[in-house]
């Protein structure tokens, strides 16, 4: 971190001199940092070591995870072969990927646009009003939000069907059940948008407000109108922020918010609503196929890491910056 600063620093100089000796301060700091690592050891690293479960056989005789860990025979890559050959698994993966790609296309740019539009508001009170209210849904749990979605889309008491009918789709006697497989993705994208767009825009708006206003003034002198300012000043200035979030989104292409899907799942939409997060829960906690589930989890983790590293590499080549260094 900033070498010239480090060199000039009196404390660091002192430490450099007594490189070998640990002072009381060093020991305190070291212990504190170790406390964090101790926590991670228990809740992250040891479970990470538990992925060897993925290479054990699933056996209905062993109902307890620890019995599987101890007694189950090794399966090699058997579990992986099993789910690679499983039609169900691939439909789950394609749901996960398909939905996440769609969301990347629609729900990712939405907060950016929202923030740019919000920034164009000249009355700061109105701006604050819109922003404050648009963030609110983020703070509501998915359980509550799911309940609200069920209420809104209800076929007799809901409000979505009358709206759809008003715009000329469907009929009054034959309301559409929006919680069936056909409409699930659309529904999910819309409600994710409602819940997330305000919150997502906070970071972009903050990035926009830190842009030097002289840039705009200079552009206006040169005769640029507001749209050109948006396109040529605002957007490039927040590009680094966008890149960071894009990379994070890409590395999460296989993960989903479990609760979001769980609260809206029903037998009528399971074909389209089963994603890896819920499928892993289903297979692991309900069907108790521990090894099989761990293998799937390992697959998900590895793909996530690969996606992240690849995206990071490409971003560094193309945009000159990535998540790290």
């Amino acid at each position: 971190m900033g070498e010239n600063i480090t060199l000039e620093h009196p404390i660091v100089k002192k430490n450099k001199r007594k490189f070998k000796k640990w002072t009381g301060r060093d020991i305190t700091l070291f212990t504190l940092a170790c406390m964090g690592i101790a926590f991670l050891l228990v809740f992250s690293y040891i479970p990470m070591a538990g992925i060897f479960l993925a290479f054990k056989e699933d056996d209905s005789r062993y109902f307890n995870i620890f019995d599987v860990i101890e007694f189950a025979p090794w399966a090699g890559f058997g579990n992986f072969e099993e789910f690679f050959n499983d039609q169900k698994f691939w439909s789950v993966v394609s749901n996960t990927l398909g939905l996440n790609l769609l969301m990347l296309l629609i729900n990712f740019p939405a907060p950016i646009i929202f923030a740019i539009l919000l920034n164009e508001i000249m009355h700061s009170k109105y701006k604050r009003f819109v922003q404050t209210l648009s963030i609110f849904p983020h703070f509501i749990s998915w359980v509550v939000f799911g309940g609200i979605v069920l209420a809104l889309t209800d076929m007799t008491t809901g409000v979505v069907n009358p709206i759809i009918y008003f715009f000329g789709w469907g009929s009054r006697d034959n309301p559409i059940n929006l919680l069936t497989a056909d409409y699930f993705w659309g529904l999910l994208i819309v409600i994710s948008m409602l819940k997330g767009v305000g919150w997502g825009s906070v970071i972009y708006l903050a990035a926009i407000t830190s842009i030097d206003s002289q840039l705009y003034e200079a552009a206006q002198l040169d005769g640029a109108n507001r749209f050109r300012c948006m396109l040529h000043i605002t957007l490039p200035s927040i590009a680094p922020t966008i890149t960071v979030f894009l990379l994070l989104n890409i590395s999460n292409l296989l993960s989903n918010n479990f609760e979001q899907f769980y609260v809206l799942q029903n037998p009528a939409n399971i074909k389209k609503s089963e994603v890896l997060a819920t499928y892993i829960y289903q297979m692991g906690m309900i069907s108790r196929k521990y090894s099989y589930t761990t293998a799937m989890g390992l697959f998900e983790s590895c793909i996530g890491v690969i996606l992240m590293l690849t995206a990071n590499y490409i971003s560094k080549k193309v945009a000159g910056r990535g998540l790290f260094g």
Partner: peptide, 10 residues
């Protein structure tokens, strides 16, 4: 991460 099952075991 290790995933759901190892964490649950922990």
């Amino acid at each position: 991460g290790g995933g759901l099952i190892p964490y649950f075991a922990m």
